[in-house]
Design a protein around this nucleic acid. Sequence first.
DNA 1: TTCGTTTAGTAAAACGTTTTACTATTTGAT
DNA 2: ATCAAATAGTAAAACGTTTTACTAAACGAA
Lengths: 334, 334
Amino acid sequence: MKPLSIKDIALKAGVSITTVSFILNGKAKEKSISDAVIKKVQKIITESGYKPNQVARSLRTGNTNIIGLIVEDISNSFFSRIARLIEDKAYKKGYKIIYSSTENKIEKAQELINIFKSRKVDAYIISPVKGLEEDIQVLIDENIPVILFDRNLPELKTNYVGANHFEASYQATESFIKQGKKNIALVTTDIDVQQIAERFEGYKKSILDHTISYQKDLVLNIPFKQNEDETITQIIALLTNSNVDAVLFATNYLAISGLKALKQMGKKIDSNFAVIGYDDHEAFELHTPSISTIQQPLEEIAEAIIKLILAQLSSKAKLPDQKIVISAKLILRN
Amino acid sequence: MKPLSIKDIALKAGVSITTVSFILNGKAKEKSISDAVIKKVQKIITESGYKPNQVARSLRTGNTNIIGLIVEDISNSFFSRIARLIEDKAYKKGYKIIYSSTENKIEKAQELINIFKSRKVDAYIISPVKGLEEDIQVLIDENIPVILFDRNLPELKTNYVGANHFEASYQATESFIKQGKKNIALVTTDIDVQQIAERFEGYKKSILDHTISYQKDLVLNIPFKQNEDETITQIIALLTNSNVDAVLFATNYLAISGLKALKQMGKKIDSNFAVIGYDDHEAFELHTPSISTIQQPLEEIAEAIIKLILAQLSSKAKLPDQKIVISAKLILRN
DNA sequence: TTCGTTTAGTAAAACGTTTTACTATTTGAT
DNA sequence: ATCAAATAGTAAAACGTTTTACTAAACGAA
């Protein structure tokens, strides 16, 4: 009971394989196949339910119509939402997504690129890890479309789509200052990516620009691999030992941990103590009181990514690289 | 600058393609290739960085080592978490995941199955929509491994992994009753899947078993496609017009909407009014007060799915179908 | 009538593997 | 010395497409 092949269809229709192929690919007119034959073959195709074998097709044409998506963790809502938006848009153009999570490990990411390469994916969408530069450069050299997103690797000449993290955390910090906050803490992570660095820089610059002195011990660097309980403990320590009156969290997961810490401490968010999160999360709006946050425009980011990818895929020549930086929005909730 | 092929390696090593292939596939010993040749060829392979073309391999062997994952919406945290767990486990066995979201639309789901079919995925993991029975039956008839999860299609003889929704909502309702609640509402959805029906049945049975009379107007059926504002309005109406003292929400998104509704109403959750959600969500723990919920054991579900899949994939003969029902846990938070 | 053009279609190579069936040499037992 | 078995390896078919280069017939203009 093997699936039908183009050969079977050709046999049934009494024409050559070539003819069937031309008809399947809409080249019938151009190749001067008569209407009668076209109709006959098409009838047989629909009646038999024949579907071309994409694997064979890919081998012959070199295109798989698959886009590889490499993210840190697909179960993180930021990535899963982006993935969904990208999937939708890609699907409409006949592309499918194959994805994998790197867990922020270089070796895992490298392996993924290799696997995707041998699978001959047509293009890559990567939220990269530092240390991946060489591997990505190889892809670029082979003229395979690559779009980085969320995190940039500045030394790489390629496409990038992401939010303006510097500006966003600058503004968030500034909003604290305008509320009269004096001791503004930043809870961030130690993963070494540009985007996290930018969030720190925006915070620092804002503090210095407003003639508040920058206090190093108000910045908490949480080790990436650390388990949550430990993180909560550290946040509690930060908040008990000092007179912090505002906290900016650099990722949504840190903010969630932060809120848990506050809950454990019994510390309330009110006019004396303010909090801003990063990347929206349903818990923020629902929290009592609602939590303000820096919101990345997911839809716009996904849109930009897919536009870049499709442009590359449909153009024979290599297109000029683009770095697209989209403003994040500070959502102030009372 | 085409990538290296097995031919190039054979040429460089001065052996036949066959020999290289045997070495690549670990059949060298069995096919009596000398150690000297094996070493030489392996050296050339690692030095040149040659990676076999998986597309060609798939065409020849008929196996793609790709598992198709079809869910309602990958951005829903229940599915994205499951996806991540499945991905991890599959990855370790050399399988990759290709996924797509059905948005609960039959046509979309059918199309997805067709696309995956022409892509020759080795196995399917499907959270199905009603109406997909025939299409899935075709897969089963072709002897392709299929695992349904989350939602069962009872008339289909195939594998299924899911939680015991009847039991879970029975227990949740019972816990309300033990707290002395008299007017327990259920907020559920109108999507026509067994799993949702079971949640309703568990609720109803529990009410009747405890000699409380079942009040039809305490069950709110939210249309699936409805936007959230409308849903919130309906929930508010339910809660203002009656003397409801407890609410069970049948999905996590409904619970989130419910909490938003309560916030808008200014209604507090306390000893006079209790709430239980479904499928955990970070917002539940963080909420003030914390929200009790029915938690599906994601890890166990993913584990069961992958175990079934791998068993099928590695056995030539068709294995007997299994329906695995895992107890959900009622997490009571104060 | 002749010959270039258009129409209608096909044969066969190619994509990069795996695998079957084969050959040639060496070994070892009698 | 003979021959079966083991060792070491290879040629070529096959997987299911697309595409290039070709042929044969019909047409139209001179």
